[in-house]
Lab assay of single mutants.
Amino acid sequence: MAAGGDHGSPDSYRSPLASRYASPEMCFVFSDRYKFRTWRQLWLWLAEAEQTLGLPITDEQIQEMKSNLENIDFKMAAEEEKRLRHDVMAHVHTFGHCCPKAAGIIHLGATSCYVGDNTDLIILRNALDLLLPKLARVISRLADFAKERASLPTLGFTHFQPAQLTTVGKRCCLWIQDLCMDLQNLKRVRDDLRFRGVKGTTGTQASFLQLFEGDDHKVEQLDKMVTEKAGFKRAFIITGQTYTRKVDIEVLSVLASLGASVHKICTDIRLLANLKEMEEPFEKQQIGSSAMPYKRNPMRSERCCSLARHLMTLVMDPLQTASVQWFERTLDDSANRRICLAEAFLTADTILNTLQNISEGLVVYPKVIERRIRQELPFMATENIIMAMVKAGGSRQDCHEKIRVLSQQAASVVKQEGGDNDLIERIQVDAYFSPIHSQLDHLLDPSSFTGRASQQVQRFLEEEVYPLLKPYESVMKVKAELCL
């Protein structure tokens, strides 16, 4: 049975990233139509530049190519590739079939990587351009969430054990800070992308030097003109047959890092959902379990974690691919890159769409948070109580021993009897502590235990987050809708 299948058929496997999760716009960027249309555009740009620099290419040939950029006979191309065992030459023939007058000058002087690699770089750039505003929107939604809850005390956790208090907004800023680093890295790697350009079979530009009869300047002009037509500021000066596969490492490393950030955020949300302090959106008709109707599973956060793990592992592909590119190139890269580049971007696209949807509907339960604080705060307040007693004339050592005994009794009630923490009640009825009984409410005010959390939130948002989001103001209103 021949390899390949009808990918629109229910009898043929289709990647869930495309069929179930990723956005239509990201799927289109990695589609065959987008790819092969870009090949034709690159052939047109090459012909236009070659004509401008004096090669015998007519206006009629150029116009014929322009008129057929979208006229792609995919069936013919597939048949040609089956016959020739070469995808680029299959599309040269297919393009030439609908451009008979231009057929002889299509791909003039070029090698397969002229269309293959340059198209990949265009796709990487455009895919990054799709991700950047999506990530900015996630940051914006979380920034709104953090600002609104900047002063809401909550129990902090280290080692997932109760620690000092923080605020809900401050905790959210930990998430935002990681995503801001990801946004900066995505922008950097996007701006650092260079075009492969017009380089020939081993990167020496020998074929173009021959076409222009040894004119170095025209060869350099050709490279520059096509690079500018493709919208790049610069091209690699040095290439082998391909652009260095280190570029793929750079791009997928940034995406993998984004995956790590999203995994951490969504894990926190899942843990908070278990504590009943916070939940992701839950639709009115949504079913959490087929057997347990009360369940409210954090399905979206779980999906993000599941896909983020996949995204983090994909960076190993370009690392290994770059390491086995012998001399000017081997074909070890080809099949692998067809999979890992598309999957990385479709996965990143999915987790950003999902995280935006989550961040637009996060639900906080202040009463649950308050109750958990009441359970733990008495123990945390013991040092403040000791200091207040010393100020009232008591002995630190005597007070410490009193607190120690009462704390152990209260802990026994919590752990052995399943009761509430009654340390404060014990202190309130103990005559030894009568000098500070009137101060206990103040000493137990949760806001006095959150330090500068709310001020940190305000400063972080104003100095770091809002300036970073400013270039994306025009796209901030787009909502994230999930079908599944």
Rank of each mutant, 00 (worst) to 15 (best):
C99Q: 12
A291D: 05
A235S: 06
Q416C: 07
M380W: 07
F28Y: 06
T313N: 07
A18V: 02
K470G: 07
D182I: 09
V262P: 03
K170H: 03
I106F: 05
A235E: 12
R459Q: 12
T347Y: 07
L142F: 07
E81T: 05
L482M: 11
D6F: 00
S140K: 15
V115A: 02
L193I: 12
D129S: 08
Q161P: 01
G288A: 05
D178H: 06
G214R: 11
R459K: 01
T321N: 00
V475N: 14
E25C: 15
I176N: 04
T119V: 08
S474K: 15
D441M: 06
Q161M: 01
H91T: 00
H310F: 05
F30C: 02
T94V: 11
R40Q: 14
V315Y: 01
R270A: 01
F28T: 10
S112L: 03
G203P: 00
A322S: 07
T244L: 00
T154S: 02
F345P: 04
L44D: 09
Q205P: 02
E81Q: 09
L17S: 13
S257R: 12
L222K: 06
V413C: 04
C340I: 07
E481H: 04
H107T: 13
I105Q: 03
D445S: 15
H442E: 11
L406P: 00
G54L: 10
S334C: 01
D192W: 03
T94Q: 03
L165D: 08
I351H: 01
V405Y: 14
E79H: 04
S434E: 08
L461E: 02
T52L: 03
L209T: 04
S448K: 15
H437I: 14
P293E: 09
T242Q: 01
L444A: 11
R125I: 03
T244A: 13
F212P: 09
L272M: 15
L44W: 10
P378I: 06
Q51R: 07
L341H: 05
L484H: 08
R141P: 06
P318G: 02
L314N: 03
H442N: 14
T38S: 09
F379L: 11
Q320P: 11
I339S: 04
Q325Y: 06
D11T: 13
L355E: 00
T354K: 05
A18S: 12
G104E: 02
C113P: 03
M225G: 03
E302L: 07
A411N: 15
K147C: 03
R426I: 14
N421S: 14
V478G: 12
L209G: 08
P471G: 11
S448C: 06
I105Y: 00
C113W: 06
V262K: 12
Q408A: 05
S448V: 05
M292R: 11
Q51K: 03
K264G: 11
Y365N: 15
I249E: 10
S334W: 03
K367W: 08
D144C: 13
S9N: 12
W39G: 05
D268F: 14
Q397A: 08
F28H: 08
N297D: 10
M387I: 14
I373S: 06
L155Q: 02
I72A: 03
F345G: 07
G96W: 01
D332G: 12
L255Q: 11
I106E: 03
A230P: 07
F433P: 06
T201A: 01
E277D: 06
I369W: 07
L469G: 08
L275I: 04
I122M: 02
P100H: 00
S253H: 08
L377A: 09
H263G: 12
S448T: 11
R245K: 04
Q455E: 12
E464V: 06
G104C: 04
R141V: 06
M278A: 03
P153A: 04
Q458A: 09
L331Y: 14
R309M: 13
L121D: 08
D120W: 11
S112K: 07
T38G: 14
N384L: 13
E343L: 03
K264L: 14
R171I: 01
K199S: 07
N421W: 05
I237S: 12
R372A: 05
T382E: 07
G288W: 06
Q210I: 07
G361F: 13
H442A: 00
Q41I: 07
V324D: 11
S261Q: 08
L193V: 03
K199H: 05
Q161C: 14
Q458Y: 06
S207F: 14
P10V: 13
K470R: 10
P471Q: 12
K264A: 11
M312C: 13
G169P: 03
Y466C: 02
I123S: 05
I176T: 06
V138T: 13
D32K: 13
L130C: 12
R149P: 03
R14E: 14
E80I: 15
L124Y: 03
Q241T: 00
A143K: 04
M299Y: 06
P293Y: 12
R452A: 08
I105D: 08
A143N: 02
E462L: 01
H86Q: 06
K264R: 10
T201P: 12
N353P: 04
M181Y: 03
L346P: 05
S19E: 15
T94W: 12
D178Y: 14
G393H: 00
E417Y: 15
A260N: 14
R459V: 11
D192R: 10
F160L: 01
Q325F: 06
Q63D: 15
M65C: 06
D420N: 00
M387P: 13
T227I: 06
Q325N: 14
L406Y: 02
N68D: 02
R426V: 05
P446N: 00
M299C: 01
L121G: 04
L440Q: 09
N336P: 06
G8T: 11
G197S: 10
M26T: 06
I287D: 03
I237R: 10
L377W: 02
P298D: 15
L271S: 12
R196D: 01
W39N: 14
G393C: 01
N71R: 06
I403A: 03
E64K: 07
P10C: 03
S112D: 07
A335Q: 00
E70M: 14
E473P: 15
S334Y: 07
Q416Y: 13
C180E: 14
R270I: 04
K402L: 12
L271F: 12
F212T: 01
R303Q: 14
C180S: 11
V189N: 09
V251P: 07
R196W: 00
A49N: 11
T354E: 04
Y472H: 09
E213A: 13
L135D: 00
